[in-house]
Computed example of a mutant assay.
Amino acid sequence: MTPLSVLPVDRLELSLVPFDWRFAVERRAEIDAHFATLQRRLPHVWNGRVLLMRDHALVDGTVRAHLFEADFASFMAWRDWGFPDTSVTNAFAMGALRGRDGGFLLGEMSAGTANQGKVYFPCGTPDPSDARDGTVDFAGSIVREMQEETGIGPNEYEQGAWFMVPAWPRLALIRILQARLPAATLCERARAHMAAEDHPELARVYAAHGPADLDDSVLDFVQAFLRHVWR
């Protein structure tokens, strides 16, 4: 397997551009049937709106890209059917929350979620609430998802450097969030938040301090990023 690249990023310029996704239009009946089957297995999944990426480029430290709005059912069908439209990318922002002792907080997705059992940094598929005046705010998406999944707010960390990890059909844009508390305390905070939720998105959290803390449940682009930071 070819190692994934971890590329430093200085700036994001992400635009929301209207786009008529032919895949979603031409396979509508199949998509709806597929999603109905998915909902019978995962009843908490609902057909909201998400943002997907059509193209991107990293030039002189700046990521420039166009995103468009689609329904979650079409996104899931595209994913589950092996990504038949290769012009589309699943792009998202992740917050790599690092404790003052260097440990990073990782979370395992709960049963009943679309990515159950997978381990990665708190994040979510961008949605229309992340777009303002034609610009998509991935930094704001990170803050929202971190708060929702762990209860840890933006006053508890400093937002640091960005990195891009291309792993088509996924494109991870990862930002280091440097916390003032040690990683174990961050995990305790997150567990308390999860315990108070009726349907927490995370099943468990733990701190990763080095490669020995990674296993096959940790997604490949997260492993690539962490090994890059730890080297």
Rank of each mutant, 00 (worst) to 15 (best):
40 R>H: 10
64 R>P: 01
15 S>K: 00
73 A>F: 04
45 V>P: 03
16 L>Y: 05
45 V>Q: 11
38 L>Q: 07
24 A>C: 06
32 D>N: 08
73 A>R: 05
63 V>N: 04
38 L>T: 09
16 L>S: 02
17 V>D: 08
70 A>F: 15
33 A>Y: 04
75 F>M: 15
23 F>P: 10
29 A>L: 11
52 L>N: 03
55 D>P: 06
50 V>Y: 01
20 D>P: 10
35 F>V: 01
33 A>M: 03
38 L>S: 07
42 L>M: 11
59 V>P: 10
14 L>Q: 07
41 R>T: 08
63 V>Y: 04
24 A>P: 07
55 D>H: 08
55 D>L: 02
28 R>P: 10
26 E>S: 13
64 R>I: 00
37 T>N: 13
66 H>E: 00
74 S>T: 11
16 L>P: 02
63 V>S: 05
56 H>Y: 15
77 A>T: 14
23 F>C: 08
31 I>E: 03
51 L>V: 02
64 R>Y: 00
62 T>N: 02
28 R>F: 09
29 A>H: 11
45 V>I: 13
66 H>C: 02
40 R>L: 10
54 R>N: 05
22 R>E: 03
50 V>D: 01
71 D>Q: 14
74 S>R: 09
77 A>W: 12
60 D>H: 15
75 F>P: 11
63 V>K: 01
28 R>W: 08
38 L>C: 10
55 D>T: 07
55 D>V: 03
50 V>R: 00
43 P>A: 06
53 M>K: 08
56 H>A: 05
32 D>M: 13
15 S>D: 01
74 S>P: 12
17 V>L: 12
37 T>D: 15
32 D>Y: 10
26 E>N: 13
20 D>M: 09
63 V>D: 06
21 W>G: 03
57 A>P: 06
47 N>R: 00
65 A>R: 01
52 L>D: 00
17 V>F: 13
28 R>S: 12
45 V>W: 04
27 R>V: 07
40 R>T: 13
63 V>I: 14
55 D>A: 07
21 W>A: 07
76 M>I: 10
26 E>A: 12
20 D>L: 09
29 A>E: 13
41 R>V: 09
39 Q>N: 04
70 A>W: 14
64 R>T: 01
32 D>E: 13
72 F>G: 10
53 M>I: 06
29 A>D: 13
55 D>S: 06
71 D>F: 11
49 R>E: 11
18 P>D: 15
43 P>V: 09
34 H>M: 04
61 G>P: 03
34 H>C: 06
49 R>A: 11
76 M>W: 09
17 V>A: 14
35 F>P: 00
48 G>I: 07
30 E>V: 07
48 G>T: 08
42 L>H: 12
66 H>L: 02
52 L>V: 02
73 A>S: 06
62 T>K: 04
31 I>Y: 04
30 E>Y: 04
72 F>S: 12
33 A>N: 09
52 L>H: 03
17 V>H: 13
76 M>T: 12
49 R>I: 07
13 E>I: 14
23 F>M: 08
31 I>F: 02
71 D>T: 12
31 I>K: 01
69 E>I: 02
60 D>A: 15
56 H>N: 01
58 L>H: 08
34 H>F: 15
12 L>A: 04
48 G>W: 08
